[in-house]
Amino acid sequence: MFRTILVLAFIADPAFADPKPLAETAFAPFLTAQTFSCSRKTCGQMRSCAEACHALVVCGDTARDRDRDGIPCESICGNTRC
């Protein structure tokens, strides 16, 4: 019961409210029902920018962002940051 009250107080506090809707955040590519794995694919093996972002953000595969600018697999993602 104590945990439930604590969680509700946390959610209800406007200080913790996100000013942007979730769809406008960096996680927007992951809001669709897609399943990716952390299998260490190369950029040439990936099928979409969302998969490349998943590898970088979720799996921590920093090799997909060689120049460390937040854009993985630039041949797929162009200038789209994750």
Rank of each mutant, 00 (worst) to 15 (best):
C49T: 05
D67W: 10
A63G: 00
A15K: 15
F2Y: 11
P19C: 08
R64W: 06
E74Q: 15
V58M: 13
V7I: 15
A52R: 02
L56Y: 10
H54F: 15
D65C: 12
A26N: 07
I76L: 15
C49H: 09
P19S: 09
T35W: 08
S75K: 11
T80L: 10
F30K: 04
M1T: 13
A55M: 12
A9T: 03
T80H: 02
F16W: 14
M46Y: 02
G70V: 07
F36Q: 04
F27V: 12
I76K: 06
L6K: 11
V58Q: 09
T25K: 04
A28T: 04
A33K: 13
P19K: 14
F2D: 15
L8A: 12
T32C: 04
L22H: 00
C82W: 03
K20F: 11
A12S: 11
A28R: 11
A26R: 10
T4L: 12
F36V: 04
A52G: 07
A12Q: 07
D13V: 01
E74G: 11
Q45K: 12
A17W: 11
P72V: 10
G78W: 01
A15G: 08
G70Y: 08
S48W: 05
Q45F: 01
T62V: 14
P21V: 13
E24V: 07
F27L: 15
L22Q: 11
G70L: 10
